[in-house]
Nucleic acid binder design. Structure first.
Length: 109
DNA sequence: CAGATGACCGAGC
DNA sequence: GGCTCGGCCATCT
C-alpha cells in the first residue's frame, strides 16, 4: 500500500540499533505525532506482514514493559530476542530500561 | 459517512 | 509502586 503512517513507524523501528529499545511514544514524537502513540502500536500489528521484517521486539511501552509480546509467536519470542541482543528482561519488562533506551529523535535530527 | 478498535501515555488516587 | 480514568488519532468495518 501507499506510504502510510505504518511505513514511517516501521522505518524508525528498523533504525533501532541492536541491544537497544525504544518506546511507542518516542516513535510517535519522532514522526511528529506526539499524541498518536496508540497508532504506533496499531501500526506494529502490521509489522508481522511488513517487509523487510521489522524488529518489533525492540519496541516497548514507556515503562519498558513488553506489552506486545502476546502478538509474537510464540509470545516468549520477544523476550528471547531481546536477551539474545544483550537486553536483560525480568518479569516481561526491560531491565535498566533507561540505559538501553534509544531515542529516535537523537538519531534522525 | 459514523461507530468501533487499539502492541499507548499522562495524571490522579 | 500499582490501579483507574480520560484523551489522543489513524485505520478498520
Amino acid at each position: 500500500m501507499e506510504a502510510s503512517f505504518y511505513e514511517q513507524v516501521f522505518e524508525i523501528a528498523r533504525l533501532v540499533p541492536k541491544g537497544r529499545v525504544t518506546s511507542y511514544g518516542a516513535i510517535a514524537k519522532a514522526l511528529g505525532a506526539g499524541g498518536s502513540a496508540r497508532m504506533v502500536g496499531y501500526a506494529m500489528s502490521n509489522a508481522g506482514i511488513a517487509q523487510p521484517k521489522v524488529p518489533a521486539h525492540r519496541i516497548v511501552n514507556s515503562s519498558g514493559l513488553l506489552t506486545g509480546k502476546f502478538h509474537f509467536s510464540p509470545p516468549e519470542l520477544m523476550q528471547q530476542l531481546l536477551e539474545q541482543e544483550g537486553v536483560k528482561v525480568v518479569n516481561d519488562k526491560i531491565k535498566d530500561f533507561k540505559k538501553v533506551f534509544w531515542n529516535p529523535l537523537e538519531e534522525i535530527i
